[in-house]
Nucleic acid binder design. Structure first.
Lengths: 359, 359
DNA sequence: TAGGAGTTAGTAAACTTTACTAACTCCCGT
DNA sequence: ACGGGAGTTAGTAAAGTTTACTAACTCCTA
């Protein structure tokens, strides 16, 4: 590596510190980062020059010596675009600030569109939301259903009728901005990890039309050997059969755990046993994953009325039953914050990760 | 980070390149690493000075220009110690060269020892094997059953009667050498990854007295939130019951898949159905893990006569049945090379990783 | 007056670029 | 067949640049 790589790393460290802890003086930064005041002063100068950081004026803190000047990440002067292609029957986009606050929204219904028509609608949506930005845009993050391979190409997304779509390049060509494309569950887990105070070892299960998950292991995202990490919907659960799945197999997780199946089962059952059973099946599927990865948190994202209650309780109980009890290895099963916007936020978070080196 | 960190990184890059590709000239190194010839020359000089690299003389290649001088990692001039505390009824140690070749061995039977007596035998064993080294020792790697937490402390290892044993410090104090302590399955998976040409996304299942596994995800080892990644033996498998486990639960993976249980079942059954059933249970447990992590390889390590045959075939078939078929995402189920020595080699590999920065 | 924030000047380390020497192969004239 | 010149590559010396540091200073306020 070159000295310039070290420099870039140090610039990222400064931004990460300001992003996570908040505004502070150069002297404070120097103490926390273990660098000299001179070095930090130089790094901050460069970040101010590039517009990534701003001075906020005197700290107002009363103590001997020259008043400290606070500096911070340019929270309001920079924006990111998040796009969610996995919502039910609608394409959604938003302008967000660096804290993940949504400043503007745009939507387009899918209608009966599929394939290239969807692609066209996505480009129109992106054009609309980019126009709504009120500050320089760092980049565009896109959360899409299906599998995304290297280079931001959507390999397969059956729900959108997509096959081998070079989505990153299409959007980058149309906007001239940096673009990052990920699976929607991946986007969601990054939102939880960064904005939802998730720990370094967590799995987020996203329940929508199907079911998928995103993973953070040792503080790192997991992509998989074929970019298909998180594809859990078509794993056979248990050893006592189950319904026939649309994929042709029997007893897939998705046959118990998906929004349409749950709504239908609830309407038919007249009680909440489908929620309990779905939670149990999800717990059965997740037990080996939690054990092998030694995860600390299982996060559920999707419609609150389905997930928050008997289903969550059943996941927790099933995991407790099927894992070895270890008091010091407490496992948390919780509902994600703000599931409706989690993919928008997560897509934007990935822009922050890549453009600012902010974790 | 400081310029010195960059320097250390570049020293590691040189060693990694020489370790994986083999001897080459400084000019070749410069081309492959994208550095100037002067920088590489300087880095190599430092590595020669420290004994980590050696000049091998002219390349012998005939072509115009000054003859190249080959340099390489000091493959025969440096050694590492590997220690395996997970073997059946015996403590084993070896001296290895940088290619993972075993140059000398030592063993001590466990007998009826437990607890502190075992600790004492380990220190005697280490002393014996260190004396057998014929070159400077980079460090000592130890593969132990149980859970190893930060600082090389063995949190629990019931089979050795250990609880909260500061193994790394005990051995470091006794020898004055750098010591690295890991779980035996972790050591095994590193041996397979580095010496057995394993890919960046693989799980190794180690079957001995119990059953555990080691994971490489995205080219990185997985530790877990509580340093307990890989503890799969006490996960309940399937939904149709099973034998009572020694942990008190029912249907744990270990009740089908462990060496003692398999030997006993084979003796009773008179055919190989226990192997087939064990493979099926292991496949059921691993299916969600393979799917969620999008793994490319499942490696089985343990007694060949148990694993290589109906059990392996059954694991593969069960995974095929329970996962969505994707031709481009071929999953390999294979037997590890040299299972008897895999923990010794893996422990030594971790010394290489940490001391030379060699991946 | 003391002590902290921030800046300037000078230095050390780690890289690159430029220029050079050393060591070889290839080619051709004798 | 041999010797010498041309051309090429490896490796090194010197100078320059970048990125950190420490030392020393000014500014500011309780």
């Amino acid at each position: 590596m070159l000295p310039a790589h070290g420099r870039r790393h140090n610039l990222s460290l400064v931004l990460q510190m300001l992003y996570t802890v908040g505004a502070m003086s150069r002297a404070d930064l120097a103490r926390r980062l273990g660098m000299s005041k001179v070095t930090v002063s130089d790094l901050v100068a460069e970040l101010i020059e590039s517009g990534h950081a701003v001075e906020l004026g005197p700290s107002g803190q009363v103590r001997p010596g020259k008043p400290a000047t606070l500096v911070d990440v340019n929270r309001t002067g920079l924006q990111a675009i998040g796009v969610d292609l996995a919502a039910h029957r609608v394409l959604r986009a938003a302008v967000l600030d660096l804290d993940g606050n949504i400043l503007a929204r745009a939507e387009r219904p899918i209608g009966d569109d599929t394939g290239d028509a969807i692609t066209q609608r996505v480009l129109e949506l992106v054009d609309e939301i980019v126009s709504a930005a009120t500050a320089p845009i760092l980049g565009i993050g896109v959360g899409t259903p299906g599998i995304v391979v290297a280079g931001g190409v959507v390999d397969t997304a059956p729900n959108l009728g997509w096959r081998d779509v070079p989505l990153r390049d299409l959007i980058a060509d149309a906007t001239g901005l940096p673009v990052f494309v990920v699976n929607d569950a991946d986007a969601a887990v990054h939102a939880d990890y960064t904005l939802g105070n998730g720990g370094d070892d967590l799995v987020l299960v996203k329940i929508g039309r199907g079911v998928g998950c995103g993973l953070i292991v040792g503080g790192q995202r997991v992509r998989g050997a074929h970019f298909a990490a998180g594809e859990i919907g078509h794993v056979t659960v248990g050893t006592d059969g189950g319904a026939v799945c649309r994929c042709g197999k029997t007893g897939c997780l998705e046959t118990w755990v998906s929004a349409p199946r749950l709504e239908q089962a609830l309407a038919t059952a007249g009680d909440d046993s489908p929620l309990r059973e779905a939670g149990e099946r999800l717990g059965i599927a997740l037990a080996p994953v939690v054990a092998v990865l030694d995860l600390a948190e299982v996060v559920l994202s999707g419609p609150g009325h389905l997930l928050d209650g008997p289903l969550r309780d059943s996941v927790e109980q099933t995991l407790r039953d099927r894992l070895l009890a270890r008091p010091e290895a407490e496992l948390t099963v919780r509902i994600a914050h703000d599931s409706d916007d989690i993919v928008l936020r997560g897509a934007a978070v990935l822009v922050l990760w890549d453009q600012l080196g902010v974790v």
